[in-house]
Amino acid sequence: MRVRLLDLCHARSGDKGDTANIGLIARKPEYFPLIVREITAERVRNHFAGIVRGSVERYELPNLGALNFVLHEALGGGGTLSLRNDAQGKTLAAALLRMELDVDKDLLLK
């Protein structure tokens, strides 16, 4: 069945210059292998087409049930240069949680 990442994860985002990071955290340990498999750096980069101009790196934190995505050239120059209302990328975490994906119904019933 089709779900939003919001149903499986919570997340927080922040900035360093023109680079943003999004920490994506599985709501349940059972969801972690699924997001490791499905939420690749490439998929995140495609999701943010038109917002993120640079590369995307992904780091795994199985001990926290989390993935960390580092998004380069993501904030319209960043810091004081950016003309965006969200110059610090605070809402990019929520933007990632919009992503939709297909999951096995059994996983959600666990």
């Binding site: 919570h10 922040g14 990071n21 920490g23 955290i25 780091y59 926290l64």
Partner: peptide, 24 residues
């Protein structure tokens, strides 16, 4: 956990003047 993942890069190399911390 939400605060731990806030504004980090490579979690295995959290560099400060004091040490390099491993978030993993």
């Amino acid at each position: 956990t939400e605060q731990l993942v806030y504004e980090i890069g490579d979690p295995r190399q959290y560099i400060t003047p004091d040490c390099v911390a491993d978030f993993s």
